[in-house]
Design a protein around this nucleic acid. Sequence first.
RNA 1: GGGACCGUAGUUCAACUGGUUAGAGCACCGCCCUGUCACGGCGGAAGUUGCGGGUUCGAAUCCCGUCGGUCCCGCCA
Length: 598
Amino acid sequence: MRNKICEELNKSDIGKAVNLCGWVDRRRDHGGVIFIDLRDHSGFMQITINPEDGETLFKQAEILKNETVIMVNGIVNERPKDSINKNIVTGELELKVKDLQILNQIKNNLPFPISVHDYENTKEEIRLKYRYLDLRRGKLLKNLKTRHKIIKAVREYLDNSGFTEVETPLLTKSTPEGARDFLVPARLSNGEFFALPQSPQLFKQLLMVGGLDKYYQIAKCFRDEDLRADRQPEFTQLDIEMSFISEEEIISFNEKLIKNVWKNVLNINFNEEFPRMTWHEAMDNYGTDRPDTRYEMLLKNLGEILGNIGFNIFTKAIQNGGAIKSITIKDGNSSISNVRIKPGGDIFKVAQDAGAGGLAFIRVKGDELETIGAIKNNLNKDHISNILKITEAKDGDLILLGAGNTQIVNQSLDRVRQYIAKDLKLIEKDKWNFLWVTDFPMFEMNEEEKRFEALHHPFCSPKNIKLEDEKELKEKIESSTAHAYDLVLNGLELGGGSLRIHQAKMQREVLRTVGLSDNQINEKFGFLIEALEMGAPPHGGIAFGVDRITMLILGEDSIRETIAFPKNQQAKCLLTNAPSNVSKSQLKELDIEITIDE
RNA sequence: GGGACCGUAGUUCAACUGGUUAGAGCACCGCCCUGUCACGGCGGAAGUUGCGGGUUCGAAUCCCGUCGGUCCCGCCA
């Protein structure tokens, strides 16, 4: 059909006859001469039509509308010197048209403008409904190409490192804990359901038992939970698993893999090793397990000083086993007013929304502290100098304080820290702050349900627990640390992994600890435990969020900008109108009845 | 499940404190124009202000409800 694409053309083509296909991006009709910007996936080429070229041809060109699909045949000409357009690659050329064919006509009034010149901030709702038009606008195509480049770099790297890509089932078994499953009715086993995988976790472990040694997969995963800008019900993981491997080996290998992606896609080299931090250090200093290290304002512990000065809220916090922590805002006295940090203020509200009862503050003025009387009156010189020392606060700085339940103090100061960093524009652009967070606890207490939950998942291997000592196994496992690690980038979790449990006895014990009965364990995970009994090698791995990596590399705010056909926030596909009703006969075949009252 | 913000022409936006016939750019339709490149000029059509109700002499604007959208919390082993 065509023998060239627009941006392949250069001066060496002058005088040659070529066929081009594409869309009418824009028509400039001067009455006598008509210019058309022809657009294809590569870029633009101006085509020109004069009345002398033939009456039929000219009349055809006169009525061309934007986005009409055309094929043109003509001679590549050099443009007159004063008509060169430096803004486009083919700006020194034009195509003198001999023949023009309309391959597809368009209806009037497209839902939104396509041409880059009319690129407008279109409502996402209609962008999703007409996703194919949105794609044609170019930005999304560029994003998809970057995504492809990332995946290609990953595949090449892993292939060169001896990995095999294996597809694991999409129709699989529902498992308790974790996210809600998407269920699929199984016609041949009436009344029973498959679940779409939340991750290929157990299958990749079974591949290790099968001796595959090094596995990866660009895996679609499904979780039926509410959506966010960085969360879709179906998303893509880069899933990796290796056998006979240590935690250190996995971390350093994957660090190289990620560095390779940044090198290939952005041509950025990281010569230093990614910094590391234990989970406890992260929680202590940042109040979160995915710290954004692009800015300071670390959390400082003031419990020892302020816990016994006689200020009731502080005293209680410490007595109840909680914490008093602070963040220091450089020059906060001038940048943040009292209105904002007192009840009703925006910063106060951020802390409050995170569960904090309030937000105390201290303003440093010279070597004096300015704060409410109930705090100030109980501070002696030693207190003051210690506070200044720990908070590293100087004249003009503002110290914000949270007191109470440690988790709530951490969470609220973390949110306040992030909020202020954005508000005061403390985040430098083009920073790539990777961070490994290690040594996650195996379990945390779910206070509502009064039971332990796995912090990562119940297949992580606990550190330093001896399987032989029955008593130690039971006693120590609840408070144990996992061989688990997350890779964090600029405060966002890129991926996480662990060494897995490869011994059946340990796996049973961990599943018991998260509250499963032996019956439930056998029913839900019997196949895994059986496999572990038959010569499972020590193994471990990691999974990265491909959508998130792509989003960060592109500098987008939503993973929807990295996915060809994403769902909206109600988990609907506005293009196809899925999900939708199915016919009665379909339901009958499955013995399924819909019982929605209203 | 909860909170915040939003919904005006095909589209992007405007319309002051509630006050004429709800305006403008692009797109669309018609006419003119032989070197433009976000071409230009003249003219035209295009609106149940998401929907329903209320307050008012008067509602795009205020109130209530509802539908839709985005962001966030919960949730996401």
